[in-house]
Simulated scan of single mutants.
Amino acid sequence: MTNEIMDRNNLMRNWFNNDSWMNNFPSIFDNNFPEDSTLKTDIKETDKNYEVHVDMPDFDKKDIDINYENDVLTISGHRDSFNDHNDKNGDMIMSERSSGRYMRQYHLPAVDSKSIKATYDKGVLEVDLPKLEKKVESGHHIDID
């Protein structure tokens, strides 16, 4: 479902960006489709593990939650990245900084959930998910009764 929503947002963004009238609209309205609305992620797979790197700038480590269940890694967090900069009249022309709750899920099968390790440094969350060791079954003879 998340992919469908992202596809719809991309379709709308492309429609607005290709419309000449919209291209002349002031940039103050470009905030309709903020680029930072998803947690940008790199995932690397090796024979032994998955390495997940997620950009999470301005998050406090205590506000990040990581869960692995039913072959799905869920990363979520809450961010309040700004103070109120309104003047005494409450005037603010534009605010592009975001706050709120963010979440992404990744299907990563056959992980040794007890060995998952995570670090957070300079706005990047790194999660190492070791794969379960594959049991190599040797063939065996089956007798017929």
Rank of each mutant, 00 (worst) to 15 (best):
K134S: 11
D65R: 08
G123Y: 06
K117G: 04
L132A: 11
G123N: 08
S113D: 14
P34V: 03
P34K: 06
A110N: 15
E69H: 07
I142S: 11
H78A: 08
D7F: 00
F82N: 06
I5L: 01
E51Q: 14
N70P: 01
K131P: 07
D65S: 09
S27E: 15
R8H: 00
P109L: 05
N18T: 11
A118T: 07
R79K: 15
Y50G: 03
I116R: 04
W15Y: 13
R101Q: 05
F16I: 12
D60I: 06
Y106G: 04
R97Y: 10
I142H: 15
A110H: 13
E35C: 01
K114I: 07
D121L: 10
I93A: 15
F59C: 03
N9H: 00
R104S: 11
D84T: 10
G77P: 02
D58T: 10
I116E: 06
N9K: 01
K48W: 10
I144D: 12
R13K: 11
Y120M: 06
S37V: 03
D145G: 02
Y68S: 03
S95Q: 14
K88N: 12
D112H: 09
V136R: 11
L108K: 02
Y68D: 02
P130K: 08
D30W: 10
M22P: 05
F59L: 05
F59R: 02
F16A: 12
R97G: 05
L129V: 07
L125Y: 02
N32K: 07
N70T: 04
T74M: 02
D63P: 06
D143L: 14
R101T: 06
N17I: 07
K88R: 11
N17R: 13
H53Q: 12
N49V: 05
D143T: 12
R101F: 08
S37P: 00
S98W: 01
E45C: 07
T38N: 03
S113H: 10
K88G: 08
L39V: 02
E4W: 05
D128T: 15
S81E: 08
V54S: 03
L73S: 00
M6L: 06
D36L: 05
I66S: 01
I66D: 00
E4F: 07
N3Q: 10
W21Q: 13
I28W: 12
K122E: 13
S37F: 03
E126G: 08
D91Y: 15
H140C: 05
S76M: 00
E137H: 13
D36E: 09
E137P: 01
S98T: 10
D55N: 12
S113F: 06
T2P: 00
M22R: 08
M92F: 14
K62N: 13
S27N: 15
K44C: 07
N67H: 09
N17E: 13
H85I: 15
I144H: 12
H107Q: 10
D58A: 13
N24M: 14
R13C: 00
T2Q: 08
N86T: 15
V127K: 06
M1S: 10
M94I: 15
I64C: 05
P109A: 05
